[in-house]
Amino acid sequence: MFRSYPPQIVLEAVLNGLLTGAVYALVAFGLTLVYGVLHIINFAHGAMLTLAMFAVLVAHIGFGIDPYLAILPLTPLFFAFGYGLQRFVISPASRNDDGAILLVTLGLSIVLENLLLAIFRSDTRTLTLDYSFSVVDTGFALLSLPRVIGFGVALIVAAALWAILALTDTGKAIRAVAKEKLGASLVGIDVNHIYAVTFGLGAATLAVAACLLMPSFYVNPRVGNAFVLVAFTVVVLGGMGSIAGALVGGLVIGVVESLSGLYLGESLGQIGIFLIFILVLLFRPTGLFGAKA
């Protein structure tokens, strides 16, 4: 089963892994942000990604908006959606209790997935755009243009999120709530508002991820599930709550998956991700960038 590949193939596999990993990072940003601040695992994350991808589809088919341009309206729209969802549904229904949040987000994922099924039906759809098949010729490898764009925007989103958290007042409040909820509320920070803002930011990054995915991927009512598990591994690898960690974690997981796929086959190669995941948890549970628990 193990065979040796010429260096060029290995190098290309690494490049593919980096491009895929950037998407993983994009999907993981929201998850890690929400985990870092609210300390919850959002089970509706995958369904929200699916929703965003259908939104891109509708924007393109219904309104003729290019997926990349759709970032402009969809990002604020999804921020508002995420904010509202946390503030008016998840928080009141769960009273911020861990077990209850788990169930509420699970319930929401069932609702979203099947609502999309009822509306759009079960067909797998794709967008065909002028640039869908465009490639960047690096001289030794042909890289898919949409995936290269996705990689670049993922870096920009990481930088933007980092800037929001580090430089703005809201960002400082988010970090304060993440560290010490009680203390933050004592100094006058509206914890519920900050929770909702964080959730909104998570949803907004999903909207960006959806816009970047659609030119080279497909959408059906269950598509988000494909990314959730891998996003969890990225979050753990990077350290829960760390944006930089999610970026590096995403890229690492992308490359690991790519190489283990190359040597073990795509199928068994999936084990590579989970073994890395288990090993990281067992030996360095705070992840690459996480603070000490």
Binding site: T20, G261, G265, E266, S267
Partner: peptide, 21 residues
């Protein structure tokens, strides 16, 4: 070569890469 892949698969670039090689 026989290349199995999972469903859903998130990326088939490496399968294409091996086919090309």
């Amino acid at each position: 070569e026989t290349i199995p892949h999972p469903t859903p698969a998130r990326d088939m670039s490496n399968v294409a890469l091996r086919i090309r090689a």
